[in-house]
Design a protein around this nucleic acid. Structure first.
Length: 461
RNA sequence: GCGAGCGUCGCCUAGUGGUUAUGGCAGAGGUUUGUGGUGCCUCCACUCGCGGGUUCGAAUCCCGUCGUUCGCCCCA
């Protein structure tokens, strides 16, 4: 008999109960914050037409998971025989993010939605990349986006860091830093230098590598992109601007004054200033955000504000939340200007890394708080009744249906981290009483069944 | 997509030409069944990803294949 390889395919994660419960707990927190800003949930399919997913820019060629119907081997053989292997079905693929599908969704439901349209989604997305250490082919992203018709206030851009800050504060992951930039600042800067539009993206990618490869290599790389040595040096000076947000904005304005044809650059700076001002007015502590001129990447469709978030002291973990403004994405489907701005928390990666770094721990493998043990089969009616009575007060209860030794039942409860066991035997039943045992302390008390729920609640508090 | 490595029980692991293929974890049962987290005992791979080859003999050597890991690239 042939062995079946039943391990998960590389890059497709699965969770043990305690890990999944942690994920749900985090999703609850995220959802609560998203909804507190008025974002609404929607659903889009996991699969879209390939042309939709590729509508804006080439998404790196290799990251989209294509989809094709698969027949059972015998039927496929028949079909191949008949020479009808390809029926010309249109190409479809799994979504690799939730922003492009959102754009299509808006185009489909234009008449049913109100604008600015603010939605959140916490779905699985798929990327056909090499899986490695916290990088998966299937992962959950918790997205929020706002899309406007014709125009969208920059205060929505300012709201994003406030939302991120609130979430990360609530889930208790330690210090974090939201790095904010604006793509117009970058593209404007290079276009002021006279770099042709098709080379600007390459230049941006080059400066992004500064921290990794050092100044010398960046200068050399810029030289290959039609930049004079002075311009290359100017570029280094530009992206080296650091400090608190006001200082950076001042420095940028000084820089702009020295450049010709700096309209785009100045527009970027003005947008950035508006966003930063909004973030400040929303009360986000200065220590939690900064302007970082080197962040630029993300997917092709970003045109304005961009964000990346890292954990302080765990920068190697990479960005755990990023996003930005895209002004031409939705419009590509309906030929109308519909700017949007959004962010995405890479929840799967976040959980994996926080667990590994011991910043978060899995929850108990079961939500069960009380286990009603099965001492005598004939007392089952009482067990069921007691269980229901507890549940009605909001306590999470499991009843032991299997007849096993008490020893086993206690061991099982213990192993699952269940806090209380309720034991009812003949004697207790006769007196309308039960034994309530705390599995952590080992302490056990006799209480009347009528008071059981109150007793449990008091001890859980 | 390119370069390098690895594949022994559910998980980790010993084993590098001849062993009934180690050991641990997890799991099942027991330790005289109304009390768990410790101890002790028993059980748990006719087989070393799969296919072929070399050999008297292969988990161990060779070829292929599949899977997987690490680097580059890209990103959450």
């Amino acid at each position: 008999m042939e062995k079946i390889n039943f391990s998960t395919p590389s890059g497709f994660p699965e969770f043990l109960p305690g890990e999944k419960r942690l994920e749900q707990h985090l999703m609850d927190t995220i959802r609560r914050v998203y909804e507190s800003y008025g974002f609404t949930p929607i659903e889009t399919p996991a699969v879209e037409r390939l042309e939709v997913l590729q509508a804006k820019g080439n998404q790196g060629d290799n990251i989209i998971y294509g989809l094709q119907p698969m027949l059972p081997p015998n039927r496929q053989a028949e079909r191949d025989e008949a020479g009808k292997g390809d029926t010309g079905t249109e190409a479809r693929a799994l979504k690799f993010d939730q922003t492009v599908p959102l754009a299509a969704y808006i185009a489909r439901h234009l008449n049913d939605l109100n604008f600015p349209f603010a939605r959140y989604q916490m779905d699985l997305v798929f990327r056909g990349e090499r899986a490695k250490d916290g990088r998966y082919r299937q992962f959950r992203q918790c997205d929020i986006d706002v899309v406007g018709r014709k125009e969208l206030s920059l205060l929505y851009d300012a709201q994003m860091p406030a939302i991120i800050a609130e979430i990360f504060s609530q889930i208790n992951v330690g210090e974090f830093l939201i790095r904010i930039n604006n793509r117009k600042v970058l593209t404007g800067f290079f276009s002021s230098l006279g770099v042709s539009p098709d080379r600007i993206k390459t230049c941006i990618n080059i400066i992004d590598t500064l921290e990794k490869v050092g100044v010398a290599k960046v200068l050399a790389a810029l030289a290959t992109q039609e930049l004079s040595p002075e311009q290359a040096q100017q570029t280094i000076d530009f992206i080296s601007i650091k400090g608190d947000v006001d200082r950076v904005l001042t420095a940028l304005n000084e820089f702009a004054a020295k450049l010709n044809d700096a309209d785009q650059f100045k527009l970027g700076i003005a947008e950035l200033a508006t966003v930063i001002n909004g973030v400040r007015n929303l009360g986000v502590p200065e220590s939690q955000y900064c302007i970082d001129l080197s962040i630029a990447r993300g997917l092709d469709y970003y045109t304005g504000t961009v964000y990346e978030t890292t954990l302080i002291g765990h920068e190697a973990l990479g960005s755990i939340c990023s996003g930005g403004r895209y002004e031409e994405l939705v419009g590509t489907f309906i030929g109308e200007s519909m700017p949007g701005v959004g962010i995405s928390i890479g929840l799967t990666r976040l959980i994996y890394r926080l667990l590994k770094a011991n910043i978060l721990q899995p929850l108990a493998p079961t939500p069960t708080q009380v286990m009603v043990l099965n001492l005598q089969e004939d007392l089952m009616p009482i067990y069921l009744q007691v269980s229901q009575q507890l549940r009605q007060t909001g306590i999470k209860v499991a009843t032991a249906f299997d007849k096993r030794s008490l020893k086993k039942q206690f061991a099982l409860a213990d192993k699952q981290g269940i806090i209380f066991c309720v034991v009812i035997g003949e004697e207790e039943a006769a007196n309308k009483q039960c034994i309530l045992k705390n599995m952590t302390s080992g302490e056990q008390v006799v209480v009347s069944i009528d008071n059981l729920a109150a007793e449990v609640k008091q001890r859980l508090a």
